[in-house]
Design a protein around this nucleic acid. Structure first.
Lengths: 134, 134
DNA sequence: TTATTTGCAAAAACTTTGCTGATAA
DNA sequence: TTATCAGCAAAGTTTTTGCAAATAA
């Protein structure tokens, strides 16, 4: 993907606005469904291409965690996530108690360290209810 | 998958031995290639089914991190990983400096917390070399 | 003996890509 | 005007599933 001249297309704007507007961490096809309400003719490929491109640009963040599908986050401030192992939903976590990120060396096992991510796994309130009532 | 009567099949033994024997964190198809040297007629579906089943049983661990494919770890002791963003390789990390796991509450945002995982992202020595020399 | 597991092939799920027409600048 | 981008469809990649034959117990 060239970076010579970047265009602000309508699709690109709507995808970004939509992602920024939600506090969830949608997959490409979830975002596609949301965006389609404004742009009924948009294609899933465009959503994929733009999410990939925006995460390369650092405009959004590709969530590097478990689960089947990739998820995206409009919040690029450092923070961690908790994922429901039943339904796959991902929420933000307040994490004062967790990692002292500034203690992470910039070289480990010969790797040049670029970043880190932390995922808690759990069962969300909704899925907890379903399990209790079944 | 029923759990009424569990059979110790030859395939299951070889898959587990092979995974335990390596210090890498192979994907299903990497493990398939390794196992096939001993069991040339085994199918990839069997590898997938058994890895899934063994991770449900807690015999092995499915690595909940980024990257395209799922990876599996024969080491079920708690530890963290570093993944090369260039080639996808995953190594273990010594992590005294990282998370105080016992500080993680067992309820967060209404989620019942089951576990956590941490991934560092970086560039491995091999890929670093390739980048320097190109 | 018989219920579980395998191998195979097909399908499903998710993501990327090639191409042509549309469009931002 | 024109190089970038979108839409569409097709292909690629990874994982799961149905079913008949094989097999562990």
């Amino acid at each position: 993907m060239h970076t010579d001249k970047i265009r602000i297309t309508h699709q690109r704007e709507v995808i970004l606005e939509t992602l920024k507007a939600v506090k969830t961490h949608p997959t490409a096809d979830e975002l596609y469904d949301m965006v389609r309400r404004q742009l009924p003719r948009i294609s899933l490929a465009t959503v994929y291409r733009n999410l990939e491109w925006m995460s390369e640009q650092g405009i959004v963040k590709k969530i590097e965690v478990g689960g089947r599908q990739k998820r995206f986050d409009g919040n690029i401030m450092p923070h961690y996530h908790i994922r429901c192992v039943e339904c796959g939903k991902v929420d933000d976590v307040e994490c004062d108690f967790l990692v002292a990120a500034n203690q992470i060396p910039d070289t480990i096992n010969g790797y040049r360290v670029l970043g880190h991510s932390m995922e808690l796994q759990g069962i969300c309130p909704d899925c907890n209810l379903k399990k209790v009532s079944s």
